[in-house]
């Protein structure tokens, strides 16, 4: 549902032109070779029936903890790809719908560091939700997500940015890591302060690179975008989130706050989806995650 009130359109309404920040180097991502997407990221993979049955049997016989296994496939894979794809772009390539919001409309520089900043913003939003899962499960999801993120940065630096020296890559990775700690802390501070002003300073410092000539309308659009995502994450149940049923709302769309009846309806639909009427579910669908919260 595209709406005239979406963050993207909101940012477009600003009459201030995009100014180039003279302090930011103009280095577009110009890859030597573009990493190919793995098969399971490109399309929905359907396993043959016999493989499914074998899998279910193994899970059942060894009493495997599916919440633990799901942390890798959902937290580490699906959720990471979602964050990464928001702003991934290469030189002379047409921007995706979400990337157009960040680079064309907001006028952010098309660099690797900028991609990192936007990705970590999305990862942080998932962190906020993962903290609200039971401790053991949530921590595992977070760990898998961060592991995948840094593995992917390492790959991109070596293959796409063509940094062959392992020492230099490690130095960059350490730098990215300390940036991550700072960004997560300042965004957490903003969330805990329950104030848009604190969130604005954190986003200005990180996503907008401390641009002195910032367009405040665009800053507000990003704040609105973040708050909108957090709202959806708040309303989704642990079970649905843990099973990977969450998608980021596109910047070109908008969300209206739910009425109490709609919240009830959402809960009902989730229960119907994850609980069968006769109480029997496949071994791989077992989970300790709550359906209500």
């Amino acid at each position: 549902m595209a709406s005239s009130e979406s963050p993207h359109n909101y940012a477009k309404q600003s009459s201030m032109p995009n100014l180039v920040n003279p302090e930011i180097p103009k280095k577009d991502v110009n890859p030597k070779q573009i990493l190919e997407k793995p098969l399971y990221e490109r399309a929905i993979v359907r396993l043959p029936e016999w493989q499914k049955a074998l899998g279910e049997a193994i899970v059942s016989i060894f009493h495997m903890d599916m919440d633990r296994i799901r942390a890798g496939s959902i937290g580490g894979s699906k959720y990471y790809y979602m964050c990464k794809d928001q702003s991934l772009q290469y030189k002379n390539e047409v921007l995706s719908e979400t990337a157009a919001f960040w680079y064309s409309t907001l006028g952010l520089p098309r660099t690797f560091a900028q991609w990192y900043q936007i990705t970590i913003l999305h990862i942080w939003m998932l962190f906020v939700r993962m903290r609200a899962l039971p401790f053991k499960v949530g921590k595992n999801y977070q760990q898998k997500l961060v592991d995948k993120f840094f593995k992917d940065i390492d790959m991109r630096l070596s293959e796409e940015m063509d940094i062959r020296s392992g020492t230099i890559r490690t130095r960059y990775l350490k730098d990215f890591h300390s940036q991550m700690i700072g960004i997560v802390a300042s965004l957490d501070e903003a969330l805990a302060s329950q104030s848009d002003a604190v969130l604005a300073s954190a986003i200005w410092r990180n996503v907008f690179n401390g641009d002195k000539n910032i367009d405040i309308v665009k800053l507000e659009a990003v704040i609105r975008y973040v708050r909108m995502q957090l709202y959806v994450l708040d309303k989704i149940s642990d079970r649905a989130f843990g099973f990977g049923d969450f998608e980021f709302v596109s910047p070109a769309e908008t969300v209206d706050p739910l009425t109490p009846e709609e919240v009830q309806q959402l809960r009902k639909v989730t229960k119907e989806k994850y609980e069968s009427i006769d109480g029997k579910i496949l071994p791989s669908q077992h989970s300790s995650l709550s359906l209500d919260e």
Binding site: R131, A132, L133, F135, G138, Q194, L199, I223, M228, E293
Partner: peptide, 19 residues
């Protein structure tokens, strides 16, 4: 804090049960 109030979240995220 217009958007914080518009998209109000409850204690589920602000006092997460894991932490």
């Amino acid at each position: 804090s217009k958007w914080e109030k518009y998209y109000q979240i409850d204690n589920k995220l602000l006092e997460p049960k894991g932490n």
